[in-house]
Amino acid sequence: MQVRFRTIGDATCTGAVLSSAKNIDEIIQEVSATRITERGGRSDDKRSEAAMEDRKKEGYF
């Protein structure tokens, strides 16, 4: 698949997006057109609505 990563974390929780953006200008174009958030492809945030808050309270980044 032609993909790129919008956010990079651990390979087990970071999703890729289908993309043909080959340079920064094309990434900027893609980001300005997208209707999905950057972390929309991260399964770590999808575990529950307060997943990030709970992790942060414990001391996560």
Binding site: M1, Q2, V3, R4, F5, R6, I8, A16, S19, S20, A21, K22, N23, E26, I27
Partner: peptide, 12 residues
């Protein structure tokens, strides 16, 4: 930046 941010072919 790492090339992971740019479009590439990957087994997914």
């Amino acid at each position: 930046i790492p090339t992971l941010y740019l479009s590439h072919n990957r087994d997914c």
